[in-house]
Design a binder for these strands. Structure first.
Length: 282
DNA sequence: AAAACGGGCAACCGCTACGAG
DNA sequence: ACTCGTAGCGGTTGCCCGTTT
């Protein structure tokens, strides 16, 4: 591919006759780190020149922000982070930078890649579009509650308490209760992982339709955002049809999972068993 | 053993927003 | 009001590497 940097900021960059592209070398990384350590970041075009790097300012900025920055976190996306990503994406869509602001140390690029490689893969395997109502409902009512339960179980196990499992729990499974046809409880309750029943009346935090977060996004997730009346609908008119509509679609989804489910995914694989169990034992 | 394939991820590209002059 | 330089965003590309055939 020919080099065609047509952006406004390309003029000074064009002065370089031999701009480097592609993967960064250790030497380049050190040069960038050392320069920023001594002079700070910003003014990326001049920074690149002064640091002796034959890279565009853009490239330097990206390398620093996504890889070299001291506080950047790399590696496995935790369950909590997965939950946040799913929830925030359902709220904001592909606003990767905005989503990344709520995951300290994670970059927009990493979150974007996670979404594309993991989440979209599952949608593909379910033979539905990642933006389809079907898939979004699956996320909201099956995947997210399941993730929350896993987080609760993990934290309980970490604290030495006997963990509640999907099969042994009587009241902890969001999916199991949500999967039941139209009941009074389902109209007004969202089960928060293994932590018990959440209703609009027992919110631990003020229930608000405000789309912004408080200081702790995770707290918002657990105690505020899983309020059916105020948040789960997200203005989605179809969801106003209530749990019965959800139930029918949930069954459809589970059928799809059984037919063509993922055999590799981490929690997804586990969830196939979980979902099968939930829908077979009701 | 080697080629083909596919997933994951770093890096690039095009574009917009914004502030300074 | 306009131009220019810069920062930042989201989409896309292409490479690397593990797995499968």
């Amino acid at each position: 591919m020919e080099h065609e940097n047509g952006g406004i900021n390309s003029q000074s960059e064009e002065e370089f006759s031999d701009l480097r592209r592609g993967p960064w070398t250790i030497e380049e990384d050190f040069a960038l780190i050392n320069y920023i350590a001594n002079h700070g970041e910003g003014r990326w075009n001049s920074l690149s020149r002064c640091a002796g790097l034959k890279r565009t300012g853009k490239s330097c900025r990206l390398r620093w922000l996504n890889y070299l920055r001291p506080d950047v976190r790399r590696g496995n996306i935790t369950l909590e982070e997965q939950l946040l990503i799913l929830e925030l994406h359902s709220r904001w869509g592909n606003r990767w930078s905005k989503i990344a602001q709520h995951l300290p140390g994670r970059t927009d690029n990493e979150i974007k890649n996670y979404w594309r490689t993991r989440v979209q893969k599952h949608a593909k395997q379910l033979k539905c579009d990642v933006n389809s109502k079907q898939f979004k409902d699956a996320m909201r009512y099956l995947w997210i509650p399941r993730l929350m339960e896993k987080i609760q179980v993990a934290s309980a196990a970490e604290a030495g308490a006997p963990a509640m499992t999907s099969s042994s729990s009587t009241s902890s499974s969001a999916a199991s209760d949500l999967s039941k046809p139209n009941t009074e409880a389902n109209d007004h309750q969202i089960l928060v992982g293994a932590g018990g029943v959440y209703t609009p009346g027992n919110s631990k935090a003020a229930v608000s339709s405000d789309s912004s977060f408080g200081s702790d996004p995770m707290e918002s997730l657990f105690y505020r955002d899983y309020n059916y009346d105020h948040h789960f609908c997200y203005g989605d008119q179809n969801m106003m049809n209530g749990p019965t509509a959800y139930y029918d679609q949930g069954l459809d989804l589970v059928d799809q999972w059984m037919d063509g489910g993922d055999a590799q995914g981490y929690f997804w694989n586990d969830d196939i068993w979980f979902l099968q169990h939930q829908f077979n034992t009701q």
